[in-house]
Nucleic acid binder design. Structure first.
Length: 348
DNA sequence: AACCCGGGGGG
DNA sequence: CCCCCAGGGTT
């Protein structure tokens, strides 16, 4: 049915696994070859790695597994402790779903062991369900992430539009997963994509699949995958307030959903097309000390930073936080707090 | 299917 | 400066 590509695809599996045996990365959530993987650690690492690079996620993984060694420990954790520990990793809905999922799993006595059942848990989508099932439970199920998609788009020199290509790749990989080593196959594709078949400058002369790769044969593998243009990123403006009192700073808790949902924050104005200093948490001798810029997924933000020192204050909501607590601020607020004279501890 | 949701490092 | 990364949830 796939004609010419059949041969390529059949040869791919053993070649890739042999390469993996020699070239696998050593990562904090991995085990020695042949050692059973722990579902909790697989799950936690996969959630942290969603849209997040390995070097950025790794220290968080070590921190979490040290503080909460099992899913039962994590399920029993306080929400605010988990949100603080997640600060700086981004996509904070992941942390909220992480806790929900941990509590669901603890309540039912452990992780479900099939792709289909895993898929029903909060924060676990098609990719993560396949990854956990394959890695932790040895199910013959695919784990197609951005790396695997790029590898296959090049291998088959896929010309169709990207949504169609992704669909075809998912179907192909589902057929290819070897029953003997489904988890190793998943990790092998990730490693190949991360270390050899990289987005901009694929290193084809060390690639175990070079002989099979149609994009390499064409001569310009970096032209794949063919992705649609993305929309321009608009800019928004606002004001952020650093209110200090004898070594403490005033922090508020953001609404439970939406941007930076549930996170500790500095008070801000609304963010709009223009900047306005109209939302200070109280009347004080405010001074503007500069601005911070931050890029979110779908817009850029510039916040004017205002500071004031008070002896006492009566505020409707929020907390006077010491410097240790400011380590739990998302990056945009950590930047603003530092500019406002607060000594925000470096996380790691 | 389209849109929402962070942050960082590499080129 | 631009790129995109071990994606999922919501509508």
């Amino acid at each position: 049915m796939r004609g010419k590509s059949d041969k390529t695809l059949t040869r791919l599996v053993p070649v890739l696994l042999t390469w993996f045996d020699q070239s696998a990365r050593s990562l904090p959530w991995r085990t020695a070859r042949g050692v059973k993987r722990d579902a909790y650690r697989v799950w936690l690492s996969e959630i942290m790695l969603q849209q997040t690079t390995v070097p950025h996620a790794a220290p968080y993984f070590i921190d979490f597994t040290t503080r909460w060694p099992t899913v039962d420990h994590l399920a029993a954790a306080k929400d605010e402790d988990v949100m603080q520990a997640w600060a700086g990793l981004g996509y904070y809905a992941r942390a909220r779903n992480l806790l929900k999922c941990a509590r669901d799993v603890a309540a039912r006595g452990g992780f479900p062991e099939t792709e289909a059942a895993l898929r029903t848990l909060p924060g676990i989508g098609p990719y993560t369900a396949g990854a956990i099932a394959a890695l932790a439970f040895g199910e013959r199920t695919p784990a197609v992430d951005g790396n695997a998609e790029r590898v296959f788009a090049r291998l088959l020199a896929m010309q169709e539009d990207w949504p169609a290509a992704k669909k075809r790749i998912a179907a192909i990989v589902r057929e290819l997963v070897p029953a003997s080593r489904p988890g190793d196959f998943a990790e092998a594709l990730m490693d190949l994509g991360a270390t050899v078949c990289t987005p901009k400058r694929p290193d084809c002369h060390v690639c175990p699949l070079a002989e099979l790769c149609l994009a390499r044969i064409e001569g310009a593998p970096e032209q794949y995958p063919v992705k649609p243009e993305k929309a321009a990123r608009p800019e928004r403006f606002g004001a952020v307030y650093v209110l200090r009192r004898a070594g403490f700073v005033w922090l508020v808790r953001r609404a439970p959903s939406g941007l930076l949902g549930g996170m500790l924050a500095l008070p801000t104005s609304a963010w709009s097309e223009t900047s306005a200093h109209t939302a200070a948490p109280l009347e004080a001798d405010w001074r503007r000390v500069g601005d911070v810029r931050h890029v979110f997924t779908h817009f850029s933000l510039k916040l004017d930073v205002w500071t004031a020192d008070v002896a006492d204050a009566d505020l409707p909501e929020g907390v006077w936080a010491d410097e240790a607590q400011t380590a739990g601020l998302p990056t945009v607020f950590a930047k603003a707090a530092r500019l406002g004279g607060v000594n925000v501890p470096k996380r790691r």
